[in-house]
Structure formats: structure tokens, C-alpha cells
Simulated scan of single mutants.
Amino acid sequence: MKQIDDLYSKGDVQSGDTKYFTDKELSIPFTGMVSDASNGHTNSIFELKEGLKDGIEKVFHEDSDLLEQVSEYKKNLQFGVSKEYDEQGELVHVSVVWNNKYLKTLTLSEQNVIERDEDYDLSQENYPERIVQLLKLTDHELIDYSF
């Protein structure tokens, strides 16, 4: 696993338009696992393919090693399922995300759905097949989704 400080980047981290490289000339995009750590604490671990986030990203709470969020990425954009956890490690949100847009979000309390937010129309938008499959999952299947 490569440390983020050992890589070179081009683009804007805030906009998500960042590409990571192994060389100062920014000519060799990095592919592999990356760890972003500071002061002995791992902030996040993520996969890069050809310099772009592509695969799973795990973000950890500031004051512990517990997960804060696990998300799927494709070419620097959230694409798939995202799960968010509270400071005790309890699952509080499960979402289906397409190109950083949250299409369906379940809010949970003690593993029970207490709120559902849906912002999609399968008949109006041409979603990728993978996103359509995820949107069709039952609440229970989405909660139990494994990365």
C-alpha cells in the first residue's frame, strides 16, 4: 500500500478532479491501494486505477479507527453503494450513488429504516445497468450489501 504523500497529484482535490502519479513529471498514473494518514491515524484508504479513484474508499472517524464511510468509486466519482456509520460504528445511512448524486438513501436507527429519500425515475433517466440493479434491491438487501 502506498502512502498518499509518496504520490504526486494534478487537479483539484476538493472538486474530485485529482489524478495521482508515481513521478514528478506526472506521466505515470498510479494503480493500487493508497493510505492517507496523519499523526499516526489513518484518515482513509482507497483504490486508484490509472491515477483515479476506482473501487472502494474507506474513511475513518477522526478520533478512532472505526469506519465513518465506505463508498464505491468509478473514475473519481461515487458510483454504487455508500454506507455511513456513526462514532459507535453503527450503520446510519445506506445510499445508491451515481456520479456523486445520491439517488436513494435509507436512514437507519438500530438497523431499522426510519427514513427513505429517493431522487430518481427509472423511466426518465438512462441509468447504467449496475445502478438500476442497485436501485431495485429491497431495503434489507441494500442494508446487507457487501463490498
Rank of each mutant, 00 (worst) to 15 (best):
M1H: 09
K2D: 04
Q3D: 10
I4L: 15
I4E: 14
D6F: 05
D6R: 13
L7N: 10
G11K: 08
D12N: 14
D12E: 06
V13S: 14
G16F: 14
G16A: 09
D17I: 07
D17E: 13
T18P: 01
T18E: 13
T18H: 09
Y20D: 01
Y20P: 02
K24P: 01
E25H: 10
F30R: 07
F30P: 04
V34W: 14
V34G: 13
S35P: 00
D36Q: 10
D36L: 06
A37C: 03
A37T: 04
N39L: 02
H41N: 11
S44K: 15
S44W: 05
I45F: 07
E47Q: 15
E47P: 00
L52E: 11
L52A: 14
D54K: 13
G55S: 09
E57K: 15
H61P: 02
H61I: 00
H61A: 09
D63N: 13
S64C: 09
S64M: 11
L67E: 07
E68D: 11
Q69G: 04
K75F: 08
N76M: 08
N76S: 12
N76Y: 11
F79E: 10
G80N: 08
G80H: 12
V81A: 05
K83V: 00
E87L: 08
E87C: 03
G89H: 12
E90R: 13
L91W: 15
V92H: 02
V92Q: 08
V96N: 04
V97H: 02
W98P: 01
N99F: 01
N99G: 01
N100Y: 06
L103M: 09
K104N: 12
L106S: 11
L106R: 11
T107W: 03
L108C: 10
R116C: 04
D119Y: 04
D121H: 01
L122F: 03
L122H: 01
Q124A: 00
E125R: 00
E125K: 00
E129V: 04
R130N: 12
I131N: 10
L135C: 12
T138H: 04
D139T: 05
H140D: 13
D144C: 05
S146T: 03
S146V: 03
F147L: 07
